Simulated assay, not measured.
Amino acid sequence: MIDNPVFYAVAVPVLMLTGISKGGFGAGVGIVAVPTLSLVIPPLQAVAIMLPILCLMDIFGVWSYRREWSRKLMLYLGPGAIVGIGIATLLAGYVDEHMIKLIVGGIAVLFALNYWLGGRNRDVQRPENRTKGIFWSAVAGFTSFIGHAGGPPLQVYLLPLKLDKTVFVGTTTVFFMAVNYVKLVPYSYLGLLTAENLLTALVLAPICPIAMLSGVWLHRRIPERPFYLICYVFVFLIGCKLLHDGVLGVSGMT
């Protein structure tokens, strides 16, 4: 178990923010958890500690939205994510994390800007497209494996569908529960789930229900239009954060 008090001073507020974001908006701000924790512990250790915590948060999320998610969407989003995780596992030793951040960050920023600058077309509901759904869910599975950064790619597909806000969050929650539990297998194979990391996650576990249920409470009280506006703002800010981290990482390598 990590015995550095500075780590816990950083981890507690970050995990609260992550849980509120997951429980209330389906993903979003929680993407900053790994970069923030990496300020005080090695990045790979931050990723490893976060996975059991995310798995525990997912249990509370899925229970809260157990009757309010799209089974139809998950029939093809789930398999797409597994393909993405499989590819990421095979390429784990070759993937440039910083380039992935640049690509995902660029997609997220352009996606949000396209919505805001789209005029009257921005509120048009897009029809389901299985091919696009499988592609973006595979990208989400891939980026989630690399750094728990699967939110923006999935939202690129889901947000334009204009789902009921609760179905949107419920489907996102079920999606990432499936993704995170599948990731346990390759993470274990790669030796990331050490006793120290698991014990640290266990110490932080009591935060999970408090943060997730706080997010669910907020979700039930935010009207649908402001909810989607907040989601697009989250996607934009997360994209900016990923671009920032990617640029710093690439420049540090040169």
Rank of each mutant, 00 (worst) to 15 (best):
I103Q: 02
P79A: 03
V83A: 12
G93L: 05
S64G: 13
W69F: 15
S64L: 03
W63S: 11
H98V: 00
L91K: 05
G80F: 06
Y65G: 12
I100P: 03
I103G: 03
M99I: 15
I82K: 04
I82Y: 00
L102V: 08
I87E: 01
L77D: 12
G86Q: 11
G105C: 10
V62I: 13
I107G: 05
G106T: 11
I103D: 02
K72H: 08
Y65M: 08
I107W: 00
G86M: 12
L77K: 10
I85T: 09
T89V: 02
W63T: 12
H98A: 14
I85S: 09
W63C: 10
I107L: 15
E68M: 10
D96R: 09
R66K: 15
Y76W: 14
I103H: 01
A88F: 04
M74K: 00
V104N: 07
V95F: 09
G93D: 13
Y94F: 13
F60H: 14
G84N: 07
R71C: 06
L73Q: 10
G78F: 13
L102S: 08
K72P: 00
F60G: 04
L75S: 14
R66G: 09
G106E: 04
A108G: 02
R66V: 10
A108N: 00
L73R: 07
L75C: 07
A88G: 09
I85R: 08
G105N: 08
S70N: 07
G61M: 05
G61L: 06
M99W: 15
S64I: 01
P79S: 03
D96M: 04
T89D: 10
G93H: 08
K72C: 00
A108M: 03
M74D: 03
W69R: 07
R71M: 09
G106V: 06
V83W: 01
E68N: 15
I103R: 02
K101M: 12
I82W: 00
G61I: 03
S70W: 02
K72L: 01
V83M: 03
G93V: 06
L77G: 12
G93S: 11
M74V: 05
G105I: 09
I85D: 06
A108F: 04
G78T: 14
K101C: 07
L91H: 07
